[in-house]
Nucleic acid binder design. Sequence first.
DNA 1: TAATATTTTGTAAACGATTACATATTTTAT
DNA 2: ATAAAATATGTAATCGTTTACAAAATATTA
Lengths: 327, 327
Amino acid sequence: MANIQDVAKKAGVSVATVSRVLNNHSSVTEKTRIKVEKVISELSYEPSMLGRNLRTSESKLLLVLLPSVSNPYYTEIINGIEETAIRNGYNILLCETDSNPERESRYFSLVKNRMADGIISMDPAVNKERLFELAKTYPIVQCSEYDKGADIPFVTINSELAAYHAVKHLIKLGHKKIALLTSDEQFLYARERRLGYERALREFDIEVNKQRIYYAGNIGFENGQQGMRSLLELDDRPTAVFAVSDILAIGALKEINSNGLRVPNDIAIVGFDKISFSNMTYPTLTTIAQPMYRMGSMSATMLINKIQGKHVESIVMDHELVIREST
Amino acid sequence: MANIQDVAKKAGVSVATVSRVLNNHSSVTEKTRIKVEKVISELSYEPSMLGRNLRTSESKLLLVLLPSVSNPYYTEIINGIEETAIRNGYNILLCETDSNPERESRYFSLVKNRMADGIISMDPAVNKERLFELAKTYPIVQCSEYDKGADIPFVTINSELAAYHAVKHLIKLGHKKIALLTSDEQFLYARERRLGYERALREFDIEVNKQRIYYAGNIGFENGQQGMRSLLELDDRPTAVFAVSDILAIGALKEINSNGLRVPNDIAIVGFDKISFSNMTYPTLTTIAQPMYRMGSMSATMLINKIQGKHVESIVMDHELVIREST
DNA sequence: TAATATTTTGTAAACGATTACATATTTTAT
DNA sequence: ATAAAATATGTAATCGTTTACAAAATATTA
């Protein structure tokens, strides 16, 4: 495996010149550049990132922290991150925390030991305290989930408003008995979406009935099924459901189907996230679309800027209500 | 940011000793080890991977090549890879090719320039020629998709046999008009699954009717819908469909539902892959389960062994027919 | 106790690039 | 043709580790 010395020797120039050719400095004369490039291709030399990284003390790696790659919610965000990263000469280190503190801490040390240049955190279950501490020293941005007080730039949507839109849509369709299928309120988005739900109801003088709010312990498909089951058992069955995630909504949908009821005729459903599967269901799901790709791409841009020492501002992006067959 | 020199100086030892403590060499005396560890924690020193990587000329990064992270087929495999990687001190670089040769070539160069120690390729659309060439110099294993002639170790299942089992299951249920919903035969798995389909039919003296085989140009959900649509238009409509992937099957399912037909009463469906969504559909999907997690974990182990210069053998893993509501 | 064997520590050279700074070369002006 | 300015190249230090090898400290043996 040839190194820069070999190239320099064979081309009859110094390593500095080879390095200049590699980084196309303007000061290299056309003639020597050609000469060096010829040798480079003859030896099929590839500059070692290891050497370069040590010297420039950067790894050109962005650490992306998320609970699980199997959650389709993240896929488009990841695409956005990766595309932007690559365009800027970075690669991404996808790290699943599984909400496991031990793993998380292992990933955190990747940035401490210079294996990664910065972090995009998408894990709602991240240890905030440690994250804030880390953010004092290392470039970090949060995507989708964020913390208001913290000094960490984030990109997100207005969850409260999105939920408000979703529920208002159901109200406009004539629904009055609207259930909320949400998750544990330890997560900010769950609290905000409940607030939006309640605001829409109040605005149309519909009483907020605690019985119609189901808090799923987890955000899996089965939780959606189970939540829907208990909502169906209510004496005064809801005619519509707003689920704070598509996965919950799909669980609800399946439970409704299994009970011989029809969507949207018997019960309408609105989900949240517009994951790819939300239009593969029967019927397709009305849902709130977040600009996933752009969120990912923007957070990568923000992180790279932060790595380069620039100041970056948090961003709240637009959402969109996508009306499909389930309402 | 403290470096090894700072630690050495403050602890009153040489950098060599600090390094030995870091890598817990046995030759370090208890007393000095304690002393050094104390300083390490006082300075909250973290050894730089950049320095270490250059010196040992390894990056401790495994490159995982796949067409798209949004394909749920890969998620469990990735989990398996990542878990095993971490256990062995590696991290993974998830790389989406999007079947884009330019991206692919950029990723290939990551291993050439020592940014990654080896490759797990899961991309069926990978440029074989370049992959084989690369495999002469760098550690590579293939997961799921593979090439028979090539000198690259792989882990996969017996697709032909799995397809045979799937179709036999349909035949046992009394079906005779069984359609095949498959993808472009440039991919080995598609060819093998068709062979298994045909073998099962022949074994039960059912004629292979070319009209009942639909070749989808792509493997997306819409292709499944479209394929099913054209199968439904046949004069002699099939009573069962074997789809070579769950996504295609889910597309077919939706198309069937949209036409007011019932699964499995009117048409039975068998999918392939047991992606997580295959039990969120209504009805749930009968499918072939591949041992995804184990396949991922095994390919990581194989790659790491290969990196360490050991000889590794290819493996064919077991599959399982998971019978659910759609048949 | 002295000589030897063993264990622990230190010195200094890698690893492969980048980049101030110094020097050599070419261009421009006179 | 010569001096000055501008451009191109080279020298050598540096990034932060690991690790042969040398040296020092300790343990063992006679």
